[in-house]
């Protein structure tokens, strides 16, 4: 992981603040989160204090500071999906997993995020798992879905 960050940094020009976000985005995409090390290195690279880097990164929803789960569910909470009942689905996921959106379970299996309209409004609520879409999701489906995903992960 150490190396990854340095490899990524090589692609950018040092000392340019406008490169900060693309740089952090790439680290986030590669590692799934921004570690303290990443923040320190990015700070040194761009020439800003880590306080600033952390301040900037926490402003944006994209960045996480703990690793995401092996499976990350994305639940659409756009207006149409909300009207079709995405709230209940989110509640159910929260109850089943026991943590909030943006967090990761202790076993590191799941994390989930809430997004705005994904474009499948007519088929809402929409949920995506590792790039696969599920449509017209009902809260009742959640326990089984999570069980199935966990099984797949653990037997992988």
């Amino acid at each position: 992981m150490d190396k990854d960050i340095d490899v990524i940094l090589k692609k950018f020009k040092p000392g340019r603040r406008e490169e900060l976000l693309p740089l952090l985005q790439e680290i986030q995409e590669t590692n799934g989160h921004l570690s303290e090390e990443a923040i320190v290195k990015a700070g040194r690279f761009v020439g800003l204090s880590t306080t600033k880097i952390y301040g900037v990164a926490t402003f944006y929803d994209q960045f996480r500071f703990i690793p995401s789960g092996k499976v990350c569910l994305k639940i659409c909470n756009g207006t149409s999906c909300f009207m079709s009942g995405s709230g209940a689905v989110i509640n159910r996921i929260r109850e089943e997993t026991g943590f909030e959106a943006g967090q990761t379970g202790r076993d590191g299996v799941f994390s989930y995020e809430i997004t705005t309209c994904m474009g499948g409004c007519h088929h809402g609520p929409v949920l995506s798992v590792n790039g696969e879409y599920l449509t017209s999701v009902k809260p009742e489906q959640i326990p089984d879905l999570l069980k199935k995903l966990k099984f797949i992960i653990e037997n992988d």
């Binding site: 603040r17 406008e18 490169e19 900060l20 693309p22 985005q25 900037v56 944006y60 929803d61």
Partner: peptide
């Protein structure tokens, strides 16, 4: 092309500029 890092308010012009400059999108 710059991907927006996730904040509704960055759609606002001056916030958008802050984001492109690598600041908090205020």
């Amino acid at each position: 092309v710059r991907a927006e890092p996730g904040a509704f308010v960055c759609g606002e012009e001056t916030a958008l500029i802050s984001t492109l400059e690598g600041r908090r999108g205020m």
